[in-house]
Structures are given as C-alpha cells and as structure tokens.
Computed example of a mutant assay.
Amino acid sequence: MTILPSALFLPDHLQLPESDGTFVKNFQEHPQSLLLTDSIAPHLQRLHPDGQYCIGQDSGIYWRLPTPPEPLYRGAESPDWFFVPGVPPNLKGQFRRSYVLWQEIVSPLIVLEFVSGSGEEERDRTPFRGKFWVYEQAIRVPFYSIYEVEKASVEVYHLVEGQYALLAPNERSHFPIGPMAVELGLWQGTYQNVELPWLRWWDLEGNLLLTGDERAAQKEALLVQERERAEREQARAEQERERAERERERAEQLAARLRELGIDPS
C-alpha cells in the first residue's frame, strides 16, 4: 500500500500559524460575516442534513507550505467568509485552527472578500501572490465574490474551464450560486444598529434568508396577527350572539303581543 508523503511529512492545522497577525480592517467586517452565517445556517442544515459542511470566517486556507524566508509567498489566504460542503464541521474531533488543503482535500465552494481599500488586493492576478490568482489557479474555488460596501457593489466570478468568468446578475440583481441553492446580492437595511448595503442571501425564488432575530420578529408578528384575528373573530361572534339575542327578545315580545290580542303566535 502506498502512503502519501503528505501524511508523513506535511504539517496539519495544529502545526501551522492560525493568524498572520493583522487586524480586521474595519468594524463592518465582523458583523457582515455574522449576518451571512446566521442567515444561511438553517438553509444549509436543510441542504446538508448529515451536517457535513463547514464555514470559515477570516480563517486561513493553506494551499502550499509557507516559506518564512519569502514572506510574499506565504502559502495561505484568509477569506473574510468561505463555505466548504462535504466535510465534517470539526476535524478529528478538534476545532480547525485553519483549513489545510493537503489535509482536507476538498476546496471551498465559495469565498467572499470584503474590500476595505481600493479593491486592488482582491483583484490581484500576480502568480503565487495575488488573491485572485490564488483563488483561481491554486485553490480553484468555484465561486469568488468581491464585495465593496463603500461602492454598494458586488462581483461574483465563476470558475469555468480553469478561468474565472464574471457572472451577470439575474432580474433581481442577484447572483445565483447553484450548488448552494441560493442567490447572493445586496440588501439595504439596518443590522446591528448600522444601516448599509449589506451582502445577503436569498433562496432561488427570491425570498430573503432571515437572521435568527428576523425569524423571531417574524414569528412574533405572525403571533400578533393571529391574536388580532382571533380577537376579531371573537368580537364578531359576540356581535352575532347579541344580534341573535335581540332577535329572540323581539320574537318573544311579538308572541306575547299576539297572545294579548287572542292570536295564536304559532
């Protein structure tokens, strides 16, 4: 039996650095990642009832061994958000410190980058160094999205025959991600007390995938509507009962009057 060299010599996620020491670039990035994860979680649970998938947020994806003497060839990228289907949520019972391709084998299905500067870094096609090149040629991610909050814009690229092709939005200005059965697009609204054109998910029918708070608020609104409907039905039933009572009283008064006149009411 042949033993792969990687199983013997290459480091795993516990031996590689889990951080490059850089700060998150702005206050919007963390809530944006939470919004994406929170809203798509129930959908992914239905799509993967076996629970075999994982989500990374500002976590490293190692595609080659890092080479400390050559800092520009670090061998890893840290997307702001990415999704991998068909892998366990934990690795051998341990939380992942990073996603190591020679250990995991399966590439992410989609990576999302949130632009804080000019966007040049996210579109850099320099071999072995540029993010665009690494996602396209090294990691080979099927879908790559670049989100620029300041410009209220989003681009989605699809890997076709080894090259990224820019996707066109559909009639809802969303980008369908077929394998995930969702659409990606911009939503103008307030999340965590900040109004922005947030990056969000919809289902393929154009229904917004809601966060836990939104689902709870929707459920509460439906309960209020149901309670108000029940109260209206109760009020109508009471009005009908009172009407029937008045009709009965009038009928009894008429019968009594007829009897006074010597007429049999029946």
Rank of each mutant, 00 (worst) to 15 (best):
L209Q: 08
A165K: 14
R125D: 14
S173E: 13
T126L: 09
Q218G: 07
D124I: 03
T190N: 12
G162I: 02
R125H: 10
K219H: 09
E195D: 14
Q137T: 11
E150R: 13
Q218S: 11
E122P: 10
R123G: 01
W133K: 07
Q218L: 15
D213V: 11
R200S: 11
D124S: 09
I139T: 06
E171G: 10
R129E: 15
V182W: 00
E195P: 10
K131V: 03
K151R: 15
P142N: 02
G178P: 08
M180A: 12
G162H: 03
E220P: 01
K131I: 02
G178S: 14
A138E: 13
W202R: 10
I139A: 01
E195S: 15
V160H: 13
L208F: 11
E150G: 07
W133I: 05
G212C: 10
P169D: 04
G178L: 14
W133T: 04
V154I: 11
E195F: 06
Y191W: 15
A165Q: 15
S153Y: 08
A221Y: 08
A165H: 12
F132E: 08
G189H: 05
M180E: 06
Y164I: 03
Y144N: 00
E155V: 00
L167K: 01
E155T: 00
A221V: 07
Y135W: 09
S118G: 03
K131T: 04
E171D: 14
T190M: 07
Q137A: 11
V182A: 05
Q188D: 11
E220Y: 10
E161D: 13
R200Y: 13
W201T: 00
M180Q: 06
R215T: 07
P127Q: 04
N193D: 15
V134R: 05
S145V: 10
K151D: 08
T190D: 12
R140L: 01
E171I: 13
F132C: 13
E121K: 14
G206E: 09
G189Q: 06
S145N: 05
R129K: 15
W202E: 01
N170F: 07
A152E: 13
Y157A: 01
K131R: 12
I146G: 00
Y157N: 01
E161N: 11
Q137M: 12
H158T: 09
Y191Q: 04
L184T: 06
K151F: 11
P142F: 04
E150Y: 06
